[in-house]
């Protein structure tokens, strides 16, 4: 049958930073073509297409079922592929190659991560699954 695209509303203006992104305004309604796990969603607005940060999107209607995974408080081991310094106070600073525990994989690409006794948000795009125990 036909593919039914989900509609989402922009909660804030988003100015694009590269050619492949879509510049949008608060209140715009876009159709989501693809949801990437790293938090960039491929959207369509009229005849324009491009990537938009999922965190800027809210569903028009309540989704029938939650697409979000349940938190895993035991933690899922990952290694950071790139260093990241926290910008907002709820984020975590992690060096490249550090092992962290992913507690909650959120659809907006910002995962809840634990490092030692500290918990905060970290970009999923810089995380790679690890089969190894932390040193």
């Amino acid at each position: 049958g036909p593919i039914v695209l989900q509609s989402y509303r922009l909660i804030a203006d988003y100015e694009k930073n590269s050619k492949s992104e879509l510049g949008v305004k608060a209140g715009d309604v876009v159709d989501v073509v693809e949801k990437n796990e790293n938090g960039w969603w491929f959207c369509q607005l009229k005849n324009k297409r491009g990537w938009v940060p999922a965190a800027y999107l809210e569903p028009l209607d309540s989704p029938d079922e939650s697409e979000e995974q349940e938190p895993n408080y035991a933690g899922d081991l990952h290694i950071s592929t790139k260093a990241y310094s926290a910008i907002m106070e709820d984020e975590l600073t992690v060096e490249e190659g550090e092992t962290v525990e992913v507690i909650h994989k959120l659809l907006d690409g910002w995962w809840v991560v634990r490092k030692g006794s500290i918990t905060g948000y970290f970009p999923a795009i810089y995380l790679q699954k690890s089969g190894q125990a932390p040193p």
Partner: peptide, 22 residues
């Protein structure tokens, strides 16, 4: 065909604009 997504983390919206859930 769909291009590859950007290779940098998606920006987070200003806290006052943040919605409760995706």
């Amino acid at each position: 065909t769909i291009k590859r997504p950007p290779e940098n983390p998606p920006p987070r919206p200003p806290p006052e604009a943040r919605r409760k859930q995706v």
